[in-house]
Write a protein that binds this DNA or RNA. Structure first.
Length: 591
RNA sequence: GGGAGCGUAGCUCAGUUGGUUAGAGCGCAUGCCUGUCACGCAUGAGGUCGCGAGUUCGAGCCUCGUCGUUCCCGCCA
């Protein structure tokens, strides 16, 4: 390291190899142990802890300063590294065999008593966020930032080696017609007009492909004005990349290599190629487009059995285009009536209209409210198909396919967690491919893009865009890690004709297309390479590798769950002068 | 927008059926203590029980409202 006036070495890097070296250290006083005579001080910097000792008989001058020290004072010390008496070695610290009797000590900055103790892991998050600069002094928070840095560095190294160019795209752009709510920025120069902050650099990175960049990446800030969750912040970071002259598999190969390198930074070894599962398989088997395959509990189809039964409720659902699926939950046959009521409420809260079940009691008895509608053969077939054993319950949901898969998928996760079936040491990565192109929105009464409007349809399904949009597949893919969507991407449309057909299928008029995407459609008329790309959620990736629940833990200065910064109090009111300059008038009435 | 949980000392929490002066640990202050490393010992300071209203002879505790915070649903191409 470069030697400065304040530092010749880092605290955490000293050991027996440095004995007798004269060093200068600076840092924070983590702890003072005043024994009356001797005083022990733990000095902390980014790298770790180092013990200072003061003895009034060794150095009375320095000792006077030591007596003034309090927690979190910033000090600089100079002295010789010495070996601790062997019986006082501290195995807990890397520097536990050495210490220093400083010849010189200077207090660089005093500190008030902190509002919370740095070694207390149970301090509530709002206090840590209010004093985030103190929270960052905590080893855990700092380590998360260090891990994030390592992952970003590994990403840059990997992509640079693969000949990618890192290109910045603008932050002040136009609003995005599809997708999330935009953050708007009023224009001072253009009265009544607004920029928006990007939800992603999507259009720009595609235009970089038109521009011949061929391989682009960016550690890109993205903004979405939607309600927050522990894994969602209003501003977040994507590892965004795009490549020309490639197909889906080329992107997958590249990203698998990237993930190997980034996971390595967290000490996790993963081995591509990862499983590729179709969207349809994922949804039918796991009830989710981001299946957690760390545990089994697969859904299965019983539509045919119920169709052949005399259970009119289920038969009606099936006649209306519905389906009946089931899941076997092991070891819950002893559930009380109340437990079962809770499970039923859970199903209803997940969107089911009702819940049916078969209980395989420990005694061997098999009970179900639906047995009266079934023949012996059908009951036997149910057991064969479910593989149910004594102690299990098989749950059924009948509804529109979307509802059934969603409910049973959530059931699967709920019981997976509750019954402790999830092996936390697994690192299951998989690709979900063949996403549908469109999804019908009841609210908007039209088809919407499942991915985004620039996603290429599967060439085999291209004419379904007009004839059967619901069954038109796209060339879109998601990377899923332990049941979390880490990122996704697609092969993009590179033909302006196909792009116009997609816009039409989405219900955009020609005027709308010209107005919103005219520049893009035009750009594509000047020679566009086939291209594809993907974006990874950096915050989620780091949070998962740091084994923390919330992405706030891996962001230096995050917003709380109501999108507020507890440290700076942003967002805040703007002055009337500012508003006037921006041609804005608040509609909020003051209380 | 909806649902649930939480809010008592600087921090983390306890507080019985509504009943006298609201407690603990840590931190902080002062004193003692020469090999500590969660140093130890002693003494002490520290409270708008989030805020407002209501019920009651009496509210930290019950009711309503409100604010803050967390999680979930909706939302997040």
């Amino acid at each position: 390291m470069k030697i400065t006036k304040y530092k010749s070495n880092n605290c955490g890097e000293l050991n027996l190899n440095n004995i007798n070296e004269e060093v200068t250290l600076s840092g924070w006083v983590a702890c003072v142990r005043d024994l009356g005579g001797m005083i022990f001080v733990e000095l902390r910097d980014r790298t770790g802890f180092f013990q200072l000792v003061s003895d009034p008989q060794v150095n009375p001058e320095a000792h006077k300063t030591f007596e003034k020290l309090k927690t979190e004072f910033v000090v600089t010390v100079r002295g010789k590294i010495t070996r601790r008496p062997e019986e006082t070695y501290n195995e807990k610290y890397a520097t536990g065999q050495v210490e220093m009797y400083p010849g010189l000590i200077e207090i660089l900055s005093e500190a008030k008593t902190l509002p919370f103790m740095l070694d207390d892991d149970s301090v509530s998050e709002d206090i840590r966020l209010k004093y985030r600069y103190l929270d960052i002094r905590r080893e855990k928070t700092l380590n998360n930032l260090i891990l994030r840095h390592k992952i970003v560095t590994a990403t840059r190294n990997y992509l640079n080696t693969q000949n990618f160019l890192e290109v910045e795209t603008p932050v002040l752009i136009n609003t995005t017609p599809e997708g999330a709510r935009d953050y708007l920025v009023p224009s001072r120069v253009h009265e009544g007009k607004f920029y928006a902050l990007p939800q992603s650099p999507q259009i720009f990175k595609q235009l970089l492909m038109v521009g011949g960049v061929e391989k682009y990446y960016q550690i890109a800030k993205c903004f979405r004005d939607e309600d927050l969750r522990s894994d969602r912040q209003p501003e977040f970071t994507q590892i965004d990349l795009e490549m020309s002259f490639v197909e889906q598999q080329d992107v997958i190969d590249l990203v698998e290599g990237l993930l190997v390198d980034t996971f390595k930074e967290a000490g996790v070894e993963i081995k591509p190629p990862f499983i590729q599962m179709t969207y349809q398989d994922a949804v039918e088997t796991y009830g989710s487009d981001r299946p957690d395959t760390r545990f089994d509990l697969k859904l299965f189809d019983v539509t045919d059995i119920m169709q052949a039964s005399t259970f009119e409720a289920f038969k009606g659902v099936i006649a209306d285009g519905g389906t009946v699926r089931a899941i076997r939950i092991p070891g819950v046959a002893n559930y009380s009536r109340k437990d079962m009521d809770d499970v039923r409420s859970l199903a209803i809260s997940f969107g089911a209209k009702g819940l049916a079940w078969v209980t395989y009691m420990e005694t061997g008895e098999v009970k179900s409210p639906v047995f009266k509608f079934l023949t012996e053969e059908q009951i036997a077939e149910l057991q064969t198909r479910s593989g149910a054993e004594k102690g299990d319950i098989v749950f059924f949901v009948a509804d529109k396919p979307k509802v059934v898969f969603d409910v049973l998928g959530r059931f699967r996760l709920y019981f997976g967690k509750k019954l402790g079936l999830i092996d936390e040491n697994k690192h299951n990565l998989l690709w979900v491919v063949d996403f549908p192109m469109f999804d019908y929105s009841e609210e908007e009464q039209r088809y919407m893009s499942v991915h985004h409007p620039f996603t290429s349809p599967n060439l085999a399904d291209i004419d379904k865009m007009e004839t059967d949009p619901a069954n038109c597949r796209s060339i879109a893919y998601d990377i899923v890690y332990n049941g979390t969507e880490l990122g996704g991407g697609s092969v993009r449309i590179h033909s302006s004709e196909v792009q116009e057909r997609v816009f039409k299928a989405l219900g955009f008029s020609e005027e709308e297309v010209q107005k919103k995407f005219g520049f893009m459609v035009n750009a594509f008329k000047y020679g566009t390479p086939p291209h594809a790309g993907l974006a990874l959620g950096l915050d989620r990736l780091v949070a998962l590798l740091a084994r923390t629940e919330s992405i706030r833990d891996v962001i230096a200065f995050p917003k709380n769950s109501s999108a507020k910064c507890l440290m700076t109090d942003a967002p805040a009111e703007a002055s009337l002068i500012q508003l006037r300059e921006l041609h804005l008038k608040s509609t909020v009435t003051k209380k």
